[in-house]
């Protein structure tokens, strides 16, 4: 098991390295002039060169990459003695816009995504697996049709539609909830919860559909397995056959998808939800940075999100090993 874990972690490190290289190459190849952007309206050629130099843009591609790569591990200093900015390891660069280390901004926005993503994920996993199981057990009956129909609606409607509808109903019309947004849980837990409840519901509706369908099909596949017949032939009650023997086998593909979804959700992929509900998360940061051509921030958010997806995959692999002895003992 330990060897398995080490193998997975090494593979994850390699993947991250590859992503770093690719993102950096794209960044470097972009036809924009960051120095010009940073220089502002009153720009002189000498000032431009100065900025170029302080950003390291006057160096070769290899040198720039090496500086960036080194910064990830040991940190990096920008600028000259007078206006020196230190960027501690792991340094993802400085924002052109704010001159602050990208990682600081990312970590500041991260709790919002963590709350949004994890909160919704727990609910849609539990509800989705539950509904999917009911649908599978009652295949072809009313409960199954209702679940499948609901799933279809969930897949079809868009986040901004549900989100805006919920906002209109709960905040504007009925005024049950205050305007949504993110308040740190450490600051005011009640406000944290109230501000996130509509975004959670929105994400749950969208993701629940997929988990219901996935669980249903996975469960139906397992029901056809010989070992399910064996479980019944032993005299196990139907409930135990489904919940113990069935779910144990059907849950593996769901774990895989769930891991990736959680990874990308807390890595900032809930960008539409963020913007509908006015939550300042990593998704919004990424969009803003693209609009401003703030390349270090684009690079940083990409790497940050990738790290979470890759880490989530490692976690999935480990859980897989725990669930399936054939993986663990292979």
């Amino acid at each position: 098991m330990l060897r398995y874990l080490i193998r997975r972690l090494l593979a994850a490190a390699v993947i991250l390295l590859v992503i770093t290289v690719i993102t950096f190459v794209i960044f470097y190849a972009l036809p924009s002039n960051p120095a010009l952007l940073a220089c502002g309206k009153t720009c002189s050629p000498s000032r431009l060169a100065e900025i170029k130099h302080s950003l390291g843009l006057d160096q070769s591609f290899m040198t720039q990459f090496w500086e960036f790569f080194k910064g990830l591990f040991v940190g990096r200093d920008y600028g000259d003695q007078s206006l020196r900015v230190h960027c501690g390891a792991p340094c993802l660069g400085l924002s052109f816009q704010t001159d602050t280390p990208v990682l600081t901004t990312l970590l500041g926005d991260f709790p919002a995504d963590l709350s949004l993503g994890l909160g919704a994920a727990v609910v849609f996993l539990v509800l989705g697996v539950g509904l999917g199981m009911v649908a599978a057990v009652r295949r072809g009956k009313a409960a199954d049709k209702a679940a499948v129909g609901f799933a279809l609606v969930g897949v079809s409607v868009q986040i901004y539609f549900i989100g805006l509808l919920l906002l209109f109903l709960f905040v504007d019309k009925w005024q049950i909830l205050p305007a949504s947004g993110y308040t740190p849980i450490t600051q005011d837990p009640a406000a944290w919860f109230q501000g996130l409840i509509l975004p959670w519901i929105t994400l749950v509706i969208v993701y629940l559909a997929m988990y219901t369908r996935l669980t249903r099909s996975s469960m139906l596949e397992v029901f056809a397995e010989d070992y399910m017949r064996t479980a019944r032939a032993k005299g196990l009650p139907a409930r135990k056959v489904v919940l113990k023997h069935g779910l144990r086998a059907a849950i593996t593909p769901i774990i895989t998808i769930f891991g990736m979804d959680v990874g990308s959700l807390i890595g900032g992929s809930a960008v539409i939800t963020e913007s509908v509900f006015g939550i300042n998360g990593i998704g919004k940061l990424a969009v803003d940075s693209v609009q401003n051509s703030d390349l270090p921030v684009i690079l940083g958010t990409t790497l940050f999100a990738a790290t979470f997806v890759v880490l989530a995959n490692v976690v999935v692999d480990v859980v897989y090993g725990l669930v399936d002895p054939r993986v663990r003992l292979a």
């Binding site: 010989d226 070992y227 064996t230 032939a233 032993k234 005299g235 144990r248 086998a249």
Partner: peptide, 25 residues
């Protein structure tokens, strides 16, 4: 019937690899 299954009437299936649950000892 459930009370009889496995206790009074039991069955050996054709392919033991698929008839045994892969995730339990």
């Amino acid at each position: 019937m459930r009370a009889l299954r496995g206790r009074t009437v039991s069955m050996i299936f054709q392919d033991p690899l698929s008839a045994l649950h892969p995730y339990f000892t």
